[in-house]
Design a protein around this nucleic acid. Sequence first.
DNA 1: TTATTTGCAAACGGTTTGCCGATTA
DNA 2: TAATCGGCAAACCGTTTGCAAATAA
Lengths: 143, 143
Amino acid sequence: MSETIEQKCLSKGVKLTDQRRIIAKVISESKKAYGESDHPDVDELYNRVSKIDPKISIATVYRTVKLFEEAGILTKHDFKSGKARYEINDDHNHLIDIKTGDIIEFVDEDIEELQKKIASKYGYKLVDHKLELYGIKIDKKNE
Amino acid sequence: MSETIEQKCLSKGVKLTDQRRIIAKVISESKKAYGESDHPDVDELYNRVSKIDPKISIATVYRTVKLFEEAGILTKHDFKSGKARYEINDDHNHLIDIKTGDIIEFVDEDIEELQKKIASKYGYKLVDHKLELYGIKIDKKNE
DNA sequence: TTATTTGCAAACGGTTTGCCGATTA
DNA sequence: TAATCGGCAAACCGTTTGCAAATAA
């Protein structure tokens, strides 16, 4: 994560406001502060933002994440929950524990390669992809 | 597609009604009648069902596809449209044309293998997976 | 100053549900 | 017959939007 969200906004011409800075900060810190697999949905984002500035409305949070997504700064995920989750644009995939909801991030070069190959086989240039694995923990002794 | 949806209902103890039979029929035929890449959303399903029996309500369509999904007969997809699509449970992936919305189905053994390997690498047994590729057609001469 | 953004509350759209009469096994 | 289902309309819930006041550049 070389560049902050704020820096990306500047370079992409996205105007910064106090609200947007706070939302950007919360998203950036959601990894460090809550661990690797923290994927807050919009509502949870709003809760965290509210603790910093309770006057920010949820409409602003929605507008901001959408804006950041359109600017290519964030990526939207849906998983199997009905609620949207946003995270910093970074090419990784997700392994989701169907029992606990835990989310593990992973990258795999071989899969990336295969995906490109498949797309081109059908005459397409790959521009985006989504890979979600759902699994249950293999128990070692107890669980 | 060896077994019909009706047969699957019987073997899974799902009670059959006229409405469910019609909905099952429409889903089964959505491939043959409309071509390989026909993935009707619930609303479109309802439209087609209505032509056979206009008295069937959309609530019944929703209840039925959900029931079939829970019985493991259908699989739900969301793609990037906000509307749910259901299709017969069959392990394939999707390549979506981001310009036209065309959907191409594909299966790839190598990818399946890799996915299992990755899951087990993290201590998980793979129980489900979702792979969506989004691409644009490579133009050959014109388009 | 001028365009853009925000907060509020109302609207939206896909999906679910409570009620009760109708239908299935 | 006993249990389940289906139709209707209202509720639900995540998300979007119109408006007027506030703010960024």
